[in-house]
């Protein structure tokens, strides 16, 4: 059966891997929260500093999953892991910064422009991991387990053997990042609507 074998949540003030808090935000730091995670975890991928927030989020979450289990992706050929990501705001945060570059900053910034597409994070993960598999980025009103479940059936029927799913909503108003790996196993946390919704909310602070 298809099971969720690993997952990572990045919240406004905490980073969690497989439900365990592994980093906490230092409110006194001048660094962005994502840079704090990068430094605390002693990650070494200088390209991180060039990335927009969506790519940073995807990079951090997938690397933290690897930290917890270095062999996590080892069972698959370079085109067998499909990337299926989504969010609600597309690349709006980077779009705003790019627009600012030509409206107020003197000239359009090419280094910002190349990140004004939500699927760029898929390219960053493909480059880093040398993955040549399927890519999909959808813009949905909210996190919808059914989107991943439905599309996974298509991918598993057409050659993909694992799925790295992602919800990357990073805006001025909040951070809601959830990555999860789906694999075929004899037992584990079944990949279904209920479990996916539950794990997506790991570390979320109730709003009331």
């Amino acid at each position: 059966m298809k099971v969720i074998t690993a997952y990572c949540n990045l919240r406004a003030n905490e980073a969690l891997v497989n439900g365990e808090v592994i980093a906490r935000r230092d409110a006194g730091s001048e660094d962005s929260w994502f840079k704090q995670i990068y430094r605390q975890q002693e990650l070494a991928y200088p390209k991180f500093y060039k990335m927009d927030v969506l790519s940073q989020a995807g990079y951090l979450a997938s690397e933290l999953m690897k930290r917890a289990d270095p062999g996590i992706f080892a069972d698959y050929a370079d085109d067998e892991i499909a990337l299926v990501f989504a969010n609600a705001s597309s690349s709006a945060e980077t779009d705003r910064r790019f627009m600012h570059s030509y409206e107020s900053g003197g000239s359009p910034s090419p280094s910002l422009f190349v990140y004004t597409l939500p699927n760029i994070v898929l390219g960053e993960l493909a480059i880093l991991n040398k993955w040549y598999g399927e890519n999909m980025f959808a813009v949905l009103p909210k996190f919808t387990p059914g989107f991943y479940l439905d599309y996974s059936r298509i991918l598993f029927a057409s050659g993909s053997r694992a799925l790295l799913g992602g919800w990357l909503e990073v805006t001025a108003n909040g951070t809601d990042v959830f990555l999860f790996l789906v694999e075929e196993k004899v037992s584990g946390t079944e990949f279904n609507d209920e479990n996916l919704l539950h794990l997506s909310q790991a570390g979320a602070v109730a709003a009331y």
């Binding site: 190349v114 040398k130 598999g133």
Partner: peptide
Amino acid sequence: GASANDANHISGPSRTGEGLVR
């Protein structure tokens, strides 16, 4: 059909066409 990533560059085409070939 299928999709495939080049795993090469975010804004530059692959020199080998690997993703398109796949």
